[in-house]
């Protein structure tokens, strides 16, 4: 266990260190986006796999995190990290508010509440756009845009990608820590039966709310990081349909495995980037995308991550058989 842990840590450091050096400017951009959306995918994936709860508002929540981060950036002189934390915490609070209906609903109805939130946020984002240094509460000026500060240790794109990847690893560790401690056990019980969880003294209300807050925190962080990568945000990124699409890709990627979130984010941002690089028409890319989504839902019950896991399992089995 210790050896694999160490190996994993080495692999992570190698990826963070080397990835930006081998990529061109365009692909660094694509990977920054991918990393930002991996946060949202991670939140949606863990809620779905641990608690069976579906959030169709993850991308919209990213927008909220980005909004708060930008607002803080233009209103204060605080360093990027503080603003990012502010955006993430504000989104976590909204996530917890979302948990209110979640205590009484599950399945499709819960998903639809979150979809309504995404729809509402889309309208608000379109009408008010994102702060760009203007005056007033909404902070939107029509004629200029003030700069968005990046972290002082990562002013250029390559280092910013490293920075985002490092924050992403923190996010993974946060979820893993939860999984291995009291909340993880509580969630497992709740997923099996809320009655049983209640009977064994688990505070169901608290742990469900906590899960929503955690998922919101991750989405908010992703939105804040995206805001700093572009310097501004646009409402078109956070449409309700994008939230639905991201959740669909969470299923395709495979929510049960930790690397499912990475696969999801790859499908969401790297795959279109590749199609674009290969010169596939944007409209046709949409057709491929939709068809692939349908195909994956039809054929892979645990998503692509599940298929990888099965494959690895087979390889391992064969190895043990060879040894025997």
């Amino acid at each position: 266990m210790k050896v694999t842990g160490l190996l994993a840590a080495f692999a992570v450091i190698a990826v963070i260190g080397l990835l930006p050096t081998i990529l061109g400017g365009q692909w660094i951009g694509i990977f920054i986006s991918t990393t930002c959306f991996a946060f949202a995918a991670m939140g949606a994936g863990f809620m779905y796999s641990r608690l069976g709860m579906v959030s169709l508002a993850q991308v919209a929540l990213m927008g909220l995190g980005g909004w708060v981060t930008l607002r803080l950036n233009h209103a204060t002189d605080l360093p990027f990290e503080v603003n990012l934390l502010g955006g993430a915490v504000a989104t976590a609070v909204l996530g917890m508010l979302l948990a209110l209906p979640a205590l009484r609903m599950r399945g499709l109805y819960l998903a639809l509440v979150t979809l309504m939130v995404a729809g509402g946020l889309e309208v608000v984002f379109t009408a008010f756009q994102f702060p760009n240094g203007g005056a007033g509460f909404w902070g939107v000026g029509t004629s200029f845009s003030a700069p968005m500060r990046r972290p002082t240790i990562a002013p250029d794109d390559a280092n910013y990608l490293r920075y985002c990847l490092a924050v992403l690893v923190l996010g993974f560790l946060l979820i893993e820590a939860h999984r291995r401690s009291a909340p993880g056990r509580a969630w497992a019980l709740i997923r099996r039966s809320e009655a049983a969880a209640l009977a064994s003294g688990v505070n169901v209300t608290f742990y469900k709310t906590w899960a929503f807050g955690l998922s919101g925190l991750l989405a908010g962080a992703g939105g804040g990081l995206l805001a700093a990568s572009l310097g501004l945000l646009d409402a078109a990124t956070f449409r309700a349909s994008e939230s639905v699409l991201l959740f669909a890709l969470v299923i395709v990627g495979g929510a049960r495995f930790w690397y499912g979130a990475i696969l999801t984010a790859f499908l969401y941002r790297v795959a279109p980037g590749l199609l674009n690089t290969w010169g596939v028409d944007a409209d046709l890319a949409l057709v491929f995308f939709g068809a692939a989504l349908l195909h994956a839902v039809m054929t892979a019950p645990d998503g692509i991550a599940g298929q990888i896991n099965d494959l690895l399992g087979k390889v391992r089995k064969e190895q043990t058989r060879d040894r025997a």
Partner: peptide, 23 residues
């Protein structure tokens, strides 16, 4: 599949139609 997944998967069909029409 559970109802949510059925609903979300139908988005794939929507994208196929939308992409074809826009093309």
């Amino acid at each position: 599949r559970e109802p949510v997944v059925k609903a979300v998967a139908s988005l794939g069909f929507a994208l196929v139609i939308l992409g074809t029409v826009s093309f």
